[in-house]
């Protein structure tokens, strides 16, 4: 069988051109009154094939420092693994948590010194006592930009106008969540290579709280999970107590429609995306870039 270079599935619907990276995704981070919010879609593609529709592109590198990954899944996972290690070491050696700026500086060093070999676009967002919520963007060449809010990935081209028109300084948390959701919805609507669910992480002095919004639920929030400050990285917390019951008292799980049925929003909603990303590592998968 011949492989094409068009990024399109072959007749058998299985064989995919792995060399051609079709980058498409959208992610963003926004400062608000009490901290910062990260948001991303969940599509990972190999050419035209959606390799994972429930990807988790929001990755924790310290208690309240997270990043949005876009570009090569393998590259960004490798980079975040290194930074996560460095920040863990930093906080032990210095007896205090790293600032967002420190995290961004370590990211930048890696991205710049390996610029010829990496395909990684990152947005670093974090909260610390001294500076509050902060957003740093590291685009392809490895430059570092401090911003009040940042958008990235192919889908972001569709929402520059939306963000400029709707972003305000010092928003309330709910307004900021709505802003992020509104922007991501537009990106998902217009960008073919962005899609799936909307994931968010809210970082404040209380720690990190996850949000999940499903398209077939009109992006109403279905669950949240807390990562209080001090929770070890990558801890898989039992979810149930944080599941919000819907109005009428129905369990969220029971209500999932066709898409959500396989979202991995079971007792541990991260598991499916975790497994998938582990499987994807090493292949030239592109995360909703």
């Amino acid at each position: 069988m011949e492989f094409t270079t068009t990024g399109v599935l072959n007749e058998d619907g299985i064989h995919v051109d792995m060399d051609r990276l079709k980058k498409g995704e959208v992610n963003m981070a926004v400062t608000f009154k009490d901290g910062v919010i990260l948001g991303a879609d969940s599509r990972t593609t190999t050419g035209a094939y959606i390799a994972n529709r429930v990807t988790d592109k929001l990755t924790q590198v310290h208690d309240t420092i997270w990043c949005c990954r876009s570009g090569s899944a393998a590259d960004t996972q490798a980079v975040t693994d290194i930074v996560q290690y460095q920040l863990g070491l930093f906080s032990m050696r210095n007896g205090k948590p790293p600032t967002t700026q420190t995290a961004a500086a370590i990211f930048q060093e890696i991205c710049y010194s390996n610029k010829d070999r990496l395909s990684a676009g990152l947005i670093i967002a974090g909260w610390d006592e001294r500076h509050g919520g902060q957003v740093y963007s590291i685009p392809l060449g490895g430059s570092l930009h401090k911003q009040a809010y940042a958008i990235g990935g192919s889908g972001s081209t569709y929402i520059y106008g939306y963000c400029d028109a709707h972003w305000k300084e010092g928003m309330e948390e709910q307004d900021a969540v709505n802003f992020v959701k509104g922007a991501l919805r537009e990106a998902i609507k217009w960008d073919g290579s962005s899609g799936g669910v909307i994931r968010m992480v809210v970082l404040t002095k209380k720690g990190a709280i996850r949000h999940l919004y499903l398209p077939d639920e009109d992006y109403k929030r279905v669950s949240g999970r807390k990562y209080p400050v001090g929770t070890p990285n990558n801890t898989r917390l039992p979810v149930p107590e944080l599941w919000e019951k819907r109005q009428g008292g129905r369990e969220v799980v029971a209500h999932f429609g066709p898409l959500s049925s396989n979202l991995g929003i079971g007792p541990c909603f991260n598991v499916s995306s975790e497994l998938t990303s582990a499987r994807l590592r090493g292949s030239s998968l592109v995360e909703d870039m």
Binding site: T31, F32, K33, D34, G35, V36, Q101, W127, E129, R130, H131, G132, G133, Q134, H145, K146, Q147, A148, E169, G170, T204, K205
Partner: peptide, 19 residues
């Protein structure tokens, strides 16, 4: 540290959630 590309006095509120 200021925001890159800050114009004039920059954001009036700045980063939120400072202790």
């Amino acid at each position: 540290t200021p925001v890159d590309g800050e114009v004039g006095s920059g954001p009036s509120v700045g980063a939120g959630g400072k202790v």
